[in-house]
Nucleic acid binder design. Structure first.
Length: 575
RNA sequence: GGUCCUGUGGUGCAGUUUGGAGUGCACGCCGGCCUGUCAAGCCGGAGGUCGCGGGUUCAAAUCCCGUCAGGACCGCCA
């Protein structure tokens, strides 16, 4: 399958069984070892690996030159095998080397041994991608999307493409605007996601839709966020939450199997509330313990002012009682930086005695409550945050990650579903509830009665898929009934006119017979990064942007000429 | 918009704390030697705006201010 008109084999596939075969391989010169004018070794590299070629004489080709090598596969002489190489049992003998293209010395070594400056890697990305690590990452990514498509199709889903040139839908993420040449002054936007399009496809009777979809958001970049990213976008009709979660679980399990050759273990399930209580976050990393302990009741009557708050939460840092004052002060500063009023620490000594700046304010009951409640052992450090419930949990959840989280590449893959998110996430400056997901998210049926009276207590039929502390994606059952949608818009303070102006085409479509439906989207960049053991999604994207949104290779973004701007109905900006 | 880290031949680093000659290490590159290496080895050589600008000082890679680039994070990401 890999033979072409120019080659018979790829470099990395040659094995002992090929001994005696005359072959032709093509690739780049990885290294050259010359032993005078009578013997030289040239390592040829292509995407499949590396093979050693033996040349009886000197070699014209230099590092990264592109060559075509004809020779005979033979077993290496006894004692010269290289167990480090997949092809290390054999070599190509009696080689003739044809130079297909000369090359300048590469700007950095084309191997995985040193990590070069990322700006330089991106500028010469076409060289960077020759490295085994990048080759492996991009091929892993391809296996993941292949497996996802296969799993979707087998489950009866239909892949449908949706427009990249979409219509502005204010609110949500900042959108990239595309000026219209035929309608000067008007704009398309690039979709933040195909959310509305896929709901329209449900009204259209597609029943089970999926798409490997590019999404674009003009928001600041991060290790796990690029302007453009790829989602496995899914939507299903006549389903419950469990149906969507089952379909998505099957996909990610199949993709994990295809990518790394092993099935993940049980996919855990916990409610948003449980996740916050136990891990202080809605995207828990289940690879390690250090769960939060609620000391609110135990310390309700404490004299210590610093611990008087609606909620008192704690974590135990095993064996950390020896931390010096500098490290402890840094932890306190970190907690304050995360929004906590403060952070209390207790070193657990022999016999359970607590050493802390707060010791003198604590009676024996309180001391016993902290020791018993947390189960801390001598030598451990207990960290306590007293604040509003959510803030106390979130601050300790972050400290838990700071102090206990293993590297991305370590440990098992622990998927979990987080369900029953609140429908609203606090209130804005005007006291209006802010939707936690999007405004088409169906409220939990048990909470519908209190939508008007206690909106912040309403749970939604929204759910996230989390893998080792990374949010892989989210989804929900959508509102398909006009009366419920009206009530949610009312709660959000969106008038009928505003709703019509923003989403009129969707609401209009719903009047023509909308099936109950729900869906999900998996962030493929993050998923692949986790499977590849990479901390950064740029490592699994061929041509990513820098943190400031530039491309060092092409120089984008660049100014457009004045004439081009005017043709688009735009005026050159003042700089 | 903000906080923090980094910037030294092509690459990776040390040197910056405590100012004293562009000093050092490894790789790469160029030339020579070398018939079993595989990160080959040995000998020789070239290669520098210490990111950029300003300031302090007799003297700045080193101290101060500003700025640019890359990165991590906060805000932001319905």
């Amino acid at each position: 399958m890999t033979a072409t008109g120019m080659r018979t084999h790829t470099c990395g596939e040659l094995r002992a069984a090929d001994a005696g075969t005359e072959v032709v391989v093509c690739g780049w010169v990885a290294r050259r070892r010359e032993h005078g004018e009578h013997l030289a070794f040239v390592d040829i590299r292509d995407y499949s690996g590396l093979v050693q070629c033996v040349v009886d004489g000197s070699v014209e080709a230099r590092t990264e030159w592109v060559v075509r090598v004809a020779g005979t596969v033979r077993m290496r002489p006894a004692g010269t095998e290289n167990p480090e190489l997949a092809t290390g049992q054999v070599e190509l003998a009696d080689c003739t080397v044809e130079v297909l293209a000369r090359a300048e010395p590469p700007p950095f070594p084309v191997d995985d041994r040193t990590e070069s400056d990322e700006a330089v890697r991106l500028r010469y990305r076409y060289v960077d991608i020759r490295r085994p690590r990048m080759q492996a990452n991009l091929r892993l990514r391809a296996r993941v999307t292949d497996a996802m498509r296969l799993s979707m199709v087998r489950q009866g889903f239909c892949e449908v493409e949706t427009p990249l040139l979409w219509t502005p839908t204010p609110e949500g993420a900042r959108e990239f605007a595309v000026p219209s040449r035929l309608h000067p002054g008007d704009f398309y936007v690039l979709p933040q996601s195909p959310q509305i399009a896929k709901q329209l496809l449900m009204v259209a009777g597609i029943d089970r839709y999926f798409q490997v979809a590019r999404c674009l958001r003009d928001e600041d970049l991060r290790a796990d966020r690029q302007f453009e990213f790829t989602q496995l976008d899914v939507e299903m009709s006549f389903v419950t939450q469990a149906d969507v979660q089952d379909a998505v679980t099957a996909v990610v399990v199949a993709a994990t199997q295809a990518a790394v050759g092993e099935e993940p273990g049980e996919v855990a399930r916990l409610t948003w509330r449980e996740s916050m209580e136990r891990f202080g976050t809605d995207k828990p990393d289940l690879r390690f313990g250090m769960e939060l302990v609620d000391l609110s009741a135990a310390l309700a009557g404490t004299e210590a002012r610093a611990l008087q708050a609606p909620s008192v939460q704690a974590i135990v840092v095993a064996g950390a009682a020896g931390l010096g004052r500098g490290r402890l002060d840094a932890l306190v500063e970190r907690a304050k930086g995360l929004g906590a009023a403060g952070l209390a620490w207790f070193k657990v000594g022999e016999g359970g005695a607590l050493d802390s700046p707060l010791s003198k304010f604590l009676d024996d009951d309180a001391t016993a409550a902290i020791a018993a409640g947390t189960g801390a052992a001598p030598g451990d450090l207990v960290l306590v945050v007293a604040d509003e419930w959510r803030r106390a949990c979130e601050v300790l959840g972050q400290l838990r990650l700071d102090l206990g989280r293993p590297p991305v590449s370590e440990g098992p893959r622990r998927f979990c579903w987080v369900t029953d998110f609140p429908l609203f996430e606090g209130v804005d400056e005007e006291g209006r509830p802010v939707p936690a997901h999007h405004p088409f998210t169906m409220p939990h049926p048990d909470d519908l009665d209190v939508l008007e009276r206690h909106p912040l207590a309403v749970r939604s039929q929204a759910y996230d898929l989390v893998l080792n502390g990374w949010e892989l994606g989210s989804g929900s059952i959508r509102i398909h009934r006009e009366d419920i949608q009206r009530r949610v818009f009312d709660a959000l303070g969106v008038s009928a006119e505003q709703a019509e102006a923003r989403f009129g085409f969707l609401l209009g479509a719903f009047r023509y017979g909308a099936p109950p439906h729900g869906g999900f989207a998996v962030g493929i960049d993050r998923f692949v990064a986790l499977l590849a053991g990479e901390e950064n999604i740029r490592e699994v994207i061929a041509f990513p942007k820098t943190q400031s949104g530039t491309d060092p290779m092409t120089g984008a973004p660049k100014p457009l000429g004045e004439a081009e701007l005017r043709a688009l109905g735009l005026r050159p900006p003042r700089r």
